[in-house]
Amino acid sequence: MAIKQLRVTFASQMQPGQEAQVRPGKPLSEPGGDYEGLHKQLKRLFNARPGKKYGRFTDDIGTSPASAWLRDYIEGKLGFESLTDKLFGQWQELLTSSQEEYYGHLMLVHEALADGEVLYLFALESDSALRLDHEQALDATDVLSTSRLNLALRLEVEDWLGDHPSENFLTLVHARGTGEPGELFIRLCGFTNQVDVEKETLTFLNAVEAFAAQTEEPEKAGQVRSKAYEFCKEQHALGEPVAIEALSGYLDEDQPERFQTFASESQDIPADAVLHPDHRKVKKLVRISGSGGGMSVSFSSDLVNQAVYYDRENDALTITKLPKALREQLQRYLEARQEGGEQ
């Protein structure tokens, strides 16, 4: 069983200025299939969530003591029940200071995997649903959402306390619109941001484009871009960053160090670098798109100078080999215009 420990608490703050209420459940060391299924789905949502942030624990333990409690727990100095009592108690204090109403569940999960141990803290979402009560009358009730996740944290234990610690062992989901409770969740976790995702995305794109440009064969350059995008997309689905060494081996199995060496020598990217590119923006490697002035255009980058030609001097785009559906739409439109003109 992957889950070693799990515990849920309900917290509410319905009257700002008064003490928030928490109702923790029992710690579960063998939570069973339903909890395993819920955790698996929440991990899917976590991995698929765009715009995640990467960082570490703040050094201000006085304000955010979670890191000290978690370290004691991992080192066996604190039991799971005591850990969650402290963590949920801190959440109660933070919500008491909030000026916004809040109610919802927190779930802490300690998971053991083949490649290391991971802790997740989820702020569970709920949806309203209708049911029939025992008198067959409609009644509204809240059910857990398995399609939304706006606040969550993942801690990679090995990256934090292992023999080769990383600077970025925390991954945070912090969606827009979570308001003050979202900021309090970050304080509870003690998260501090260490990664500029936009900068790392640009670094990734520039390195791949420069590497692809080395070849004079458009088809091979396109293959480099496509494979780099595929690798980035796969890592995103797994919730993992992009290691330059692993990417290099994926791009060229025969010469697995070729891209790694190129990135180090010409792009000043360390050979052991790990990047966190935004997979949505990395799509620029394989798609060229733009919209404005009533026009929207999108096509594969492989089609440049093959079916799509750009005239820089006249700022004109010529498209050949039109898709069948587009060609038929244009023909119908022109025929209708012509018939309308004849009338």
Results as ranks from 00 to 15, higher is better:
residue 237 A to D: 09
residue 237 A to E: 13
residue 237 A to P: 13
residue 237 A to S: 15
residue 237 A to T: 00
residue 237 A to C: 11
residue 238 L to V: 08
residue 239 G to R: 03
residue 239 G to V: 04
residue 240 E to L: 04
residue 240 E to M: 13
residue 240 E to H: 15
residue 240 E to Y: 10
residue 241 P to C: 10
residue 241 P to Y: 04
residue 241 P to G: 09
residue 241 P to L: 07
residue 242 V to F: 00
residue 242 V to H: 03
residue 242 V to Y: 04
residue 243 A to G: 09
residue 243 A to I: 04
residue 243 A to F: 03
residue 243 A to P: 02
residue 244 I to N: 00
residue 244 I to D: 09
residue 245 E to N: 13
residue 246 A to I: 08
residue 246 A to R: 13
residue 246 A to D: 11
residue 248 S to V: 05
residue 248 S to P: 06
residue 249 G to M: 09
residue 249 G to A: 06
residue 249 G to R: 06
residue 249 G to T: 10
residue 251 L to Y: 09
residue 251 L to R: 03
residue 251 L to V: 01
residue 252 D to C: 05
residue 252 D to E: 12
residue 252 D to H: 01
residue 252 D to K: 11
residue 253 E to D: 07
residue 253 E to C: 02
residue 253 E to F: 00
residue 253 E to V: 02
residue 254 D to Q: 13
residue 255 Q to C: 05
residue 255 Q to S: 12
residue 255 Q to G: 06
residue 256 P to D: 03
residue 256 P to H: 09
residue 256 P to F: 09
residue 257 E to N: 14
residue 257 E to H: 14
residue 257 E to Y: 15
residue 258 R to K: 12
residue 258 R to Y: 11
residue 258 R to M: 14
residue 258 R to H: 13
residue 258 R to I: 13
residue 261 T to D: 14
residue 261 T to I: 07
residue 261 T to R: 15
residue 262 F to S: 05
residue 262 F to K: 00
residue 262 F to D: 06
residue 263 A to H: 01
residue 264 S to E: 07
residue 264 S to M: 11
residue 264 S to V: 00
residue 264 S to W: 12
residue 264 S to P: 08
residue 266 S to A: 15
residue 266 S to H: 12
residue 266 S to I: 08
residue 267 Q to K: 08
residue 268 D to I: 04
residue 268 D to W: 07
residue 268 D to C: 04
residue 268 D to S: 12
residue 268 D to E: 14
residue 269 I to A: 03
residue 269 I to R: 08
residue 270 P to S: 01
residue 270 P to E: 05
residue 270 P to T: 05
residue 271 A to I: 13
residue 271 A to Y: 15
residue 271 A to M: 14
residue 271 A to V: 07
residue 272 D to Q: 14
residue 273 A to N: 14
residue 273 A to L: 05
residue 273 A to G: 06
residue 273 A to R: 08
residue 274 V to K: 02
residue 274 V to M: 10
residue 274 V to G: 06
residue 274 V to A: 11
residue 274 V to E: 12
residue 275 L to M: 09
residue 275 L to R: 02
residue 275 L to E: 12
residue 276 H to C: 03
residue 276 H to L: 04
residue 276 H to F: 08
residue 276 H to T: 02
residue 277 P to S: 08
residue 277 P to C: 13
residue 278 D to M: 07
residue 278 D to N: 13
residue 279 H to V: 15
residue 279 H to M: 15
residue 279 H to A: 13
residue 279 H to F: 15
residue 280 R to Q: 12
residue 281 K to T: 11
residue 281 K to G: 09
residue 281 K to R: 11
residue 281 K to N: 10
residue 281 K to P: 01
residue 282 V to R: 05
residue 282 V to Q: 04
residue 282 V to H: 03
residue 282 V to E: 00
residue 283 K to Y: 12
residue 283 K to T: 10
residue 284 K to S: 10
residue 284 K to W: 06
residue 284 K to I: 11
residue 285 L to Q: 08
residue 285 L to D: 03
residue 285 L to S: 07
residue 285 L to P: 05
residue 286 V to F: 06
residue 286 V to A: 12
residue 286 V to K: 00
residue 286 V to N: 07
residue 286 V to H: 07
